[in-house]
Computed example of a mutant assay.
Amino acid sequence: MQHIPYGRQDITQADVDAVLTVLQSDFLTQGPKVPAFEHAVASYCGTKHALAVNSATSALHIACLALDLGPGDWLWTSPITFVATANCALYCGAKVDFVDIDFRTYNLCPQALERKLEQAEREGKLPKVVVPIHLCGQPCDMKAIHSLAVRYGFKIIEDASHAIGGRYKGKPIGNCEYSDITVFSFHPVKIITTAEGGMALTNSAELASKMSLFRSHGITRDPAQMTHKTDGPWYYQQIELGYNYRMTELQGALGVSQMERLDAYVTRRHQLARRYDELLAKLPVTTPWQHPDSYSGLHLYPIRLQLDKITKGHRQVFESLREQGIGVNLHYIPVHSQPFYQRMGFKSADFPQAQAYYREAISLPMFATLTDVQQDAVIRILAEVLE
């Protein structure tokens, strides 16, 4: 029986050769390849600054630190995300709250955000940072969220871990037109990979400088940032408490190579999504709705089961698909329903749209090297299971 995973990296001989060249070079950690990767991503997105790190979680953390998030502050995000999006606030000693999702896009709902902001203003609990997640690669309504940021004074970090290669209102996701910082992920199942890795992008030289410090122990070799004249060419100063979040040269080389195929990957994902849309049209499932302002990176293709039209339950369908070699997944378990967050006082019923999504969602296989034959097998087996 074949196994079709929900996601899979595509490593070509060009990628292998790029990494091998680094292995045979003088630099394995801090050399020319990481800056080359940063330049490639910044150029692609039309952003002034890009800082590569060892994971998107690290990118979220240094983004929060650069925005001075700390004790007494609030970060708001969507409950439908991986836990790292919320955890980054707790790393900084801040508090977390959530905003329910839009029932069509599954992204943070701007109307729900506005209602929550109005109440928070009355209570004196406005957020310092809001983190919209571009779930599955589809961008949030960033213009609406940005207008609320202007009105209520919060900063914006776009969690675009799923979304490199996508576009919003015709412009590349990551250009930071409507945000302070954008974060990408290069985990193996993402659109392009550096094995592990992430990146933070910004148009602010000040934020870029802060994030550069935080990713490397808070250390600088820039005389302009030092407290006194340098002692010599060997000299550095630690001026902040930072972390070892650097990306390796091996990862940077892989990223540069993968970037050359980014558009081709996203184009193929759109072809697959159109086939899914057509082939699933007569089945009792809801296919992903795409906002006309968006061109999704299509990291994921989640369907929602129309449970009132089938005899099996959500878990039965999920397990039946896996038993037959279809490596489906569920993105995500609502963060506020995790035991760690429930101990903070959150209840599962707090965000009803997120809970409704969780009860029905299944992510079908979606990756650039998925063949039409494999996709046909996914559809056939899903149809049999739903019968």
Rank of each mutant, 00 (worst) to 15 (best):
I164M: 06
L23C: 14
Y152D: 02
E158D: 13
R122P: 05
L279E: 14
P5I: 09
A200E: 09
E196G: 06
F214C: 04
F351W: 08
L382N: 04
L330A: 03
F184C: 04
K169D: 14
L272F: 12
C92N: 08
D68V: 06
G232E: 12
L386G: 04
A89Y: 02
R322S: 02
A59Q: 01
V130P: 00
A349E: 15
A356R: 10
G153P: 07
A84L: 03
K312Y: 05
C176R: 02
Y357H: 12
H331R: 03
Q342I: 07
L20R: 15
Q374W: 08
H314M: 05
G137L: 03
T81M: 15
S209F: 04
E360M: 11
V335H: 00
D15Y: 01
H3L: 12
I326P: 00
K125Y: 08
Q111N: 14
F351G: 01
A383F: 03
A56N: 03
M211A: 11
D376H: 12
R151D: 02
D308I: 00
G93I: 08
I156R: 00
Q324D: 10
E196A: 10
Y178A: 05
T371L: 11
R315S: 07
E118A: 14
A66Y: 03
G170D: 09
M226N: 13
G170S: 12
L126K: 12
R115D: 14
V328M: 02
C109Y: 11
A160S: 09
A163Q: 02
W234G: 14
T12G: 01
V22Y: 07
L213A: 09
E240D: 13
L330P: 00
L117H: 11
F186H: 11
D308A: 06
V41Y: 07
V317N: 01
R104E: 13
P352I: 14
A208E: 08
Q13A: 10
T105M: 07
T267A: 15
D159F: 01
T77W: 01
D100I: 04
Y106R: 07
K347Y: 04
L67A: 02
L23D: 11
A56L: 01
P288V: 08
V130T: 03
N175I: 09
E118F: 11
S55W: 06
T311A: 14
H49R: 02
C45E: 04
M344I: 00
E319A: 10
D15I: 07
P79R: 03
P139N: 05
V328G: 00
L90Q: 07
R343L: 11
M366G: 06
A56G: 14
E240C: 09
K229W: 13
G218W: 07
V378T: 04
H291F: 03
H49V: 03
Q2M: 12
V183E: 01
I381C: 07
F98R: 04
G255P: 06
F214Y: 15
K143P: 00
Y178Q: 06
G46C: 06
L65H: 03
E260Y: 09
M344F: 09
T12A: 08
Y106I: 10
Y276N: 09
A273E: 09
G218H: 09
F27N: 15
A52M: 15
